[in-house]
Design a binder for these strands. Structure first.
Lengths: 400, 400
DNA sequence: TCCAGAGATGAATCCACCC
DNA sequence: GGGGTGGATTCATCTCTGG
């Protein structure tokens, strides 16, 4: 519950040996840039500089401070160092020196999707977090996650043993019945964390650059500490770590060299605001309103799926006469004429010069094609097959 | 198309300077363990050792070999070094030395889901691939992926401009209509790749430890090379890189110190087999080559694919008159009549009472349907669209 | 040759509007 | 009014252009 304003090298010296359960730090990444950001109401601009004379300067700066972090940690404590590709390899070499190779626990990958841009290499969509403990007897709470939807839950619930060749097989009783095992809590958390990046529109945003999502910090704090333990962030910035610690009922200490950052952190702690990420709450699957059948058709057409429009299911990847080509798949029990009207209505709003309707059901409505030169109706493969089979069955039942 | 047996340090010396477009290497990771694995029939055990006297020994070993890799690369070439957390930081320091910091392009995270029981730390679910180019003028093919389901695609298709306050707004014409923009190809691939770990039961599995999925290698090869370029793998192991190169029509060279690995690679190259786990079949992969186009059609028909039959590509999951229904997709440059004959020949041998041919190209051959009451010919979706677009273009060019 | 400024971009939230 | 729909908004890069 303490905030220190100052260089953490000096401020850390005020903290006792063996007194902290978790250090999380999000230092400058060695990007060689100045990071600036305005609050969304343009009321105020925050910035910090991350430019250095040399890599060695930066590494020396980091090593001095990591040594202090090591000192203040309890024997059961651990440290999570957040960085990115700019200097992650050098930082890990230093961590090996300060904490010892044997205390390296994990390289955590925080992966996210983000607004993108063109680039002649791959889009960056992850940052690295190095997890070291102070000793080999460290506090670790396993977090369980849900089974992935592709896992066969029945299989997980079966007990296993090894056959004479040492291969794992499912255990069976004398009668050959499967033996199910005790209750399972889910899958232990892995070292790749897919957590949404703080969206530019999120209310959680403070206007401080490089702000991290509270959800990320909550996960780290849950892993390494229990209720009432102490969390330290020597580069606290906008104070996300401390807000997460407060929400989770941990004690917290923050240090930052910038007066503005300290003021912002104090303000946030009075008024912790956490974005309820719909994406995370509902899961990605909830946004996918296409079933497997529709997805397969769109894939086959080389079309993008559209998830948020009732008249259009997708767009072809190639334009026609300079305009996108809308695709709609007739829904089960949807009348053909209704489907056409919906599609054409939505297409016209988008200025499409061609639309495709995939017809999936027999429907003998009269369609005036002269009215719709900008529409192609295609019978789905399975409709053609179904029609053929039924015609044929009918014929073979009829005596000639 | 060459395989060398021997230490790659020596074998690389036989390769000319500036002659290779892509080096992928998956060297020992410095795990300090011996890796063993049996083939699925328990018939044979492959192993290799990854134990070293010291880290420095290992790093010297790697540096000597990376220098040779650098030498053989073309000016437009690049290298992908696959490793894991054991020594990734040290390897990247060496890569910085050999290729130069300015030629670092990406840290690719290959993430996968795995069974786990880890109690004292997070389950490892990723490996690292470092992507360096030889110069700053390197070959790079952007791969496009689908938009996120949370993205509103009809919005993405609108052009934008800035208003007098510098705010981005959607562009409209004089009548207030939306202006849509040029073709969109999708979202450029990011540096986090979720590709399923080779399932222990996958057909693709050879029994060689540390075998990588072909899909991973295909992606790397597509990014860094074009048709006919040369791919080199100095630690080729079971030969996955070379198999992927062969499937994608690239030239390839492999080196391995183990006679068994070379023999296995030769065998796999004669018989390139590619399996997709269910996860990928559900549509996370990009559909680019012919093979994948066919997979999409079969999936669309709810048919399962068959391998190695020139007359039949798959069978419907539902029978017709008690007999299976054979499916064939007309190949590129395959004449329609020839395709029909192949399909009917193979179908009759299996006693099918109905066969489907998916027609993918314009072909005006005369077909006597009275002769073939057991055959349905279906125009592929893209053929219908192509026909329509071309007819229309023709019409609009013709003066009335 | 290098720097500044403008333009393009898409994820995911916010929020106005509509029944 | 409140739940759902879909348009509006914002940011962090990267590329391109002009001086």
């Amino acid at each position: 519950m303490t905030l220190y304003k100052g260089d953490c090298l000096n401020e850390l010296k005020k903290i006792d040996d063996d007194s902290i359960d978790l250090v999380y730090l999000d230092p400058p990444f060695f990007t060689q840039k100045t990071h600036k950001l305005k609050t969304r109401d343009n009321g105020r601009e925050y910035e910090f500089t991350d430019t250095w004379n040399s890599l060695d300067d930066y590494l020396l700066f980091m090593k001095e401070r990591l040594l202090e972090c090591q000192r203040v940690l309890k024997k059961t404590g651990s440290i999570f160092l957040h960085c990115d590709k700019s200097a992650s390899h050098h930082l890990r070499v230093i961590l090996d020196q300060v904490f010892g190779l044997c205390n390296f626990q994990n390289e955590i990958i925080w992966s996210y999707k983000r607004w993108s841009n063109s680039k002649t290499s791959l889009q960056n969509a992850h940052q690295n977090i190095y997890f070291y403990s102070k000793t080999n007897n460290f506090k670790f709470n396993t977090i369980y996650t849900d089974y992935s939807p592709t896992t066969n839950i029945d299989q997980i619930l079966q007990e296993r043993e090894r056959d004479k060749n040492g291969k794992a097989i499912y255990k069976k009783d004398e009668l050959g019945n499967i033996i199910t095992c005790k209750d399972k809590k889910g899958v232990p958390l892995s070292d790749v964390w897919e957590i949404p990046f703080l969206n530019p529109k999120a209310n959680e945003r403070t206007g401080y650059p490089t702000q991290k999502p509270i959800l990320l910090l909550e996960q780290i704090i849950k892993i390494a500490t229990d209720d009432g333990d102490t969390v330290l962030d020597p580069f606290c910035g906008s104070g996300t770590t401390l807000v997460a610690a407060k929400i989770l009922n941990r004690k917290y200490t923050g240090i930052d060299i910038s007066e503005e950052a300290i003021a912002l952190t104090e303000h946030r702690l009075e008024n912790p605001m956490k974005t309820k990420s719909d994406l995370l709450r509902k899961g990605k699957a909830d946004y996918l309103n296409k079933n497997e059948y529709e997805t397969a058709i769109l894939k086959n057409l080389d079309a993008f799926p559209v998830q948020r429009n009732s008249g259009i299911d997708g767009f072809l990847k190639t334009n026609y006469l300079g305009k996108p080509v809308a695709v709609k798949i007739q829904k089960e029990n949807e009348e053909l004429n209704l489907a056409i009207n919906k599609l054409l209505g939505a297409s016209r709003k988008r200025g499409c010069k061609l639309s495709l309707l995939i017809k999936t059901s027999r429907d003998l409505s009269f369609i005036d094609f002269n009215k719709h030169s900008d529409l192609i109706i295609i019978d789905s493969y399975d409709l053609i097959i179904k029609n053929h089979m039924e015609t044929h069955k009918f014929l073979s039942r009829t005596p000639f």
